[in-house]
Design a protein around this nucleic acid. Structure first.
Lengths: 169, 169
DNA sequence: CCGGTTTATTTTAAGCTTAAAATATCACGG
DNA sequence: CCGTGATATTTTAAGCTTAAAATAAACCGG
């Protein structure tokens, strides 16, 4: 009986498995292509128009949404990059007077990072153009297609998050 | 009359522009989140299971689809990474006996890269698991949702490609 | 209040990535 | 066949990224 089950499993695998998940794989590759294309376009425009890198723009974008600043840990969680990555990135932006950094009041381990007035002003000028670039790149999608993509990607995001983070401990 | 037009334009801008493209921006951010999540999960699994990096896997994936090999230019176009990037990546995989590299027969400038038997065998073992990881991460989507996403992302991809590459010269 | 554990950050080593400049070869029109 | 422009690749410099180890401070149960 055991062999029977195993045999069935093997046959099932042979018959279905190799084809079964091809669409999911295609979906992942297409998602990656879309992201890479848009990211490349944004990166290039940021460099040409503002001489700024994408990671710096992303960092400033997070801080612009949090006027009271964020700790490095919170930043790394929101940007989904490693902790050590931020150390150098923040250092450079502090050196160029775009960011402020201070020790947290109640926790001497933590650093609170925030935008300076200069940083905020420069970011907002960039963000305004950035929004138009994105609108242009996604310009062939109708309003309802955008809405539908938002809905389906929310589901994909939840699915991936559960699979990826559900295994952490 | 010119002032009239300009005034209308200004009013239109003030009334619509600041809000008009928020959904496209949200869509882009959600796309990026999905990609980053899945990419991180794949990267981690590739490292833990096979001690291989994602760029190496991607490179081998392209070559596996082209049994006759590819030139560096063609590879860089398909992988959407810069030319110089591949030089070191290929070098390392040649050193570890996963890739072959030979000068093209009819063009002494070009290098043709292909998988060795070892490289192909190792890649296929990884690819089989990789497909299951992706299926798991996207497991909460129904078949019809996957199909619909494929359709909409194809449109997004075409839109972005036109906007990004239409400006090259 | 003390010792073990967790949390926040930095450091380190390796590798990836890009843009731009340099090099080498090819193609082709005159 | 020769120069000119295009194409293929490598080199370079700077910056990004990660994982893992190290450091430091906070928390917490006994």
């Amino acid at each position: 009986m055991n062999e029977h089950v195993l045999l069935l499993d093997a046959e099932t695998k042979a018959a279905e498995q190799p084809q079964d998940h091809r669409d999911e794989l295609r979906l992942w590759l297409r998602l990656l292509t879309c992201t890479t294309l848009i990211e490349g376009g944004v990166r290039k425009r940021l460099r040409e128009r503002f001489d700024v890198t994408l990671p710096r723009f992303d960092l400033m974008a997070q801080l612009d949404k949090s006027p009271d600043g964020l700790t490095l840990s919170e930043l790394s969680r929101r940007m989904m990059v490693s902790n050590g990555n931020l150390t150098a990135l923040v250092e450079r932006l502090v050196a160029s007077c775009h960011l402020d950094r201070r020790t947290a009041e109640n926790d001497r381990r933590a650093q609170v990072i925030s935008l300076t007035n200069l940083g905020r002003a420069e970011f907002r000028a960039m963000a305004a153009e950035h929004e138009m670039w994105i609108a242009e790149m996604l310009g062939d999608l109708s309003r309802s297609e955008v809405t539908e993509l938002l809905r389906l990607l929310a589901k994909a995001k939840a699915s991936a998050r559960q699979a990826v983070q559900g295994e952490r401990p």
